[in-house]
Amino acid sequence: MQLSNRTKKIEPKPLNFWERMYLPVIFQGLNITIKHLFKKKATIRYPEVKRELSPVFRGLHILKRDAQGRERCTACGLCALACPAEAISMLSAERTKEEKHLYREEKYAAVYEVNMLRCIFCGLCEEACPKAAIYLQKDKFAPAFFGREEVIYGKDRLVESVTNRAKVGLDQ
């Protein structure tokens, strides 16, 4: 079968004496192999040794708290608006007087979900956030998952813990 008229027929040249012996090419190949024995290894022993991540690496999302431990997110929806993959969704609620120590603004995100299957880790949400609330961590990957119900990250997994503060963005 011919796909186009531009097919070229190639006639192999007959091999000369050295080529018929095969030994020179075998030694040539062995030479390359032996050279590589003394070169620096390209691989690392992964779980024990880890590669350094780029300073602009964008990993797992985190919802930051402010210095007093209040949630910064005010559910303005700009991250969801900026998200090209439409991975973020939220529901807002009004803060009551008793909750003043929990949320910084009078409105807060009652539900905040990031679908990690959709997320492409572009970091546009981080750029859009006017309250410096959402960050993509520089040292944490989104973990692999075994079921689809684990993929949607709610506030329970996104909000920073009060005791173990994460270092992100300008903090570093």
């Binding site: 559910a75 929806g77 608006l81 529901l91 807002s92 609620a93 009004e94 409105k107």
Partner: peptide
């Protein structure tokens, strides 16, 4: 409509 949703959603 207070805080119910953002207008653009």
């Amino acid at each position: 409509f207070r805080f119910a949703n953002r207008v653009w959603f």
